[in-house]
Each structure stands twice: as C-alpha cells, then as structure tokens.
Amino acid sequence: MPEQRSFRVFRGDAGGGQMKEYTVETGPGMVVLDAVHQIQATQAPDLAVRWNCKAAKCGSCSAEVNGKPKLMCKTRLDDLPADRPVEVRPMRTFPLIKDLVTDVSWNYEVNKKIPPFTPKPNGEWRWMQEDVDRVQEFRKCIECFLCQNVCHVLREHQKQPEFFGPRFFVRLAALEMHPMDAADRLDLTHRQSGVGYCNITKCCTEVCPEDIHITDNAIIPLKERVVDRFYDPVRRLLRKLFRR
C-alpha cells in the first residue's frame, strides 16, 4: 500500500504567485525531485523545474526545501518531518522566471570577469598529488549556486555589482593555488571581487552539496593573501624599502 504525502510547491512568475498543494505517492528512498517529477507527470505538466543528472553531479535542481537551500535530487523525503507538508520554493536571491526556475545568468557574467587559467611559459608540467589536493577540492564545484543563494551579502544586501560570491571565491582560489598558473588575480580579488564583504559566517559552507570547505579552504586563504599584499604593515614597509 503506497503511502501519500502532501507537498506545497510555489507556482508563479516574476509577477508573483502562491503555494499550491499537491499529494504525492511516496516510495522507498524517494527524493524531493522524484516528487516534483510525479507532480509534473500527473497533476501539473507545466510545473517548471530545472534538472539534469538526478545524481548530484550537475547542480541544476537547486531550490529551498522547508526553507533550507538544497539540491532536490539529494533531499530524501524520509529526512523531512512527516507531520507537515513539504514546502518547495525557488532560490530567492536570483530573479524568478517561473515556479522553481530562477535566472542565474548573473553568475555566468561574474565568471567572465575572472582571468582564465594562464600557464607558466616554460614550466615543466610535473607536479605531485599533494600540490593539487587543494585545487581538486575546489574543482569539485558543480555550480549549483546554492552558496550564492544563501550568502547574505547577495541575498539580503544585493551586492551583486561589487561582490562575486562564494562560488567565485572558490574559482579564484582554484586558479590562484594552481601550481602552473602564472596570472595574478590578487588585485582583482581585493578591489573587484569584494572579498572584504565576506564576514565568514559560513552559510556557503553549510549548504555546499559537494562538502567543499568554502570558507576555511578558499575564502580565508584568499583573505590572507590579500592581507599579505594590502594590509600587513610590515610587509608593506619591507616592500617599500626593497622595491629598488
């Protein structure tokens, strides 16, 4: 005998909308995205949702489940309290397109501002695994943009024009710590990326579905590199003295 659970899913577009109630037949191991698909196939064929791999590898199905930013393909129904309907809403830091789909194109614009990988001209392409362990952690990022969604600098204060957001600090860190990269992105990090806006409250790390330690391993090391060049008074003095 299949069990049933009720869902409340946001339906609407940029002009507004409301939560609509649906009943879904549940099965073992079911995730929120399965439920959304079932609603699509049987009750609301036009329910808009992004998804691709259904295996937490593509980062398309980001949403807010019971108020928490999550990948729907990874959120099991048996982990959600059964006494109340499961609430599914779109990410709300980005402009709404329809239902669960938001306009995340701003993120792609930010990526263009970051100078690409620039190999050292004459380096030997050999390095050890321990040299790239850090970079490989950052490269796990699946660009689900949940970190961008939850970051209060973007979500509450809309600093998009002057703040790149956690995803792109991870990208900056991956490039800056690459053993064969020759470009210098520290000025950009300090002046354009707005790393100073980050007050390391770690919500990005909390929501990352890939368990990337965004704050500890990417943002704080970037902040420390910025301190090296722009804040450390002794280093600044030494640089002034020995510049010539």
Partner: peptide
C-alpha cells in the same frame, strides 16, 4: 541581469529580522 549586476528582486524575497521559512 544587466551588466552592472543589479538584479530584479525575486517576488518571494521578504526582508526583516527572523523572516524565514525554515
């Protein structure tokens, strides 16, 4: 999004202390 990065607010966004769906 426009080039400066300024964005339209999502209609679901609500400001204010302790406002959450958690």
């Amino acid at each position: 999004s426009d080039p400066s990065g300024a964005q339209a607010r999502n209609p679901l966004y609500r400001a204010g202390f302790a406002v959450t769906e958690r």
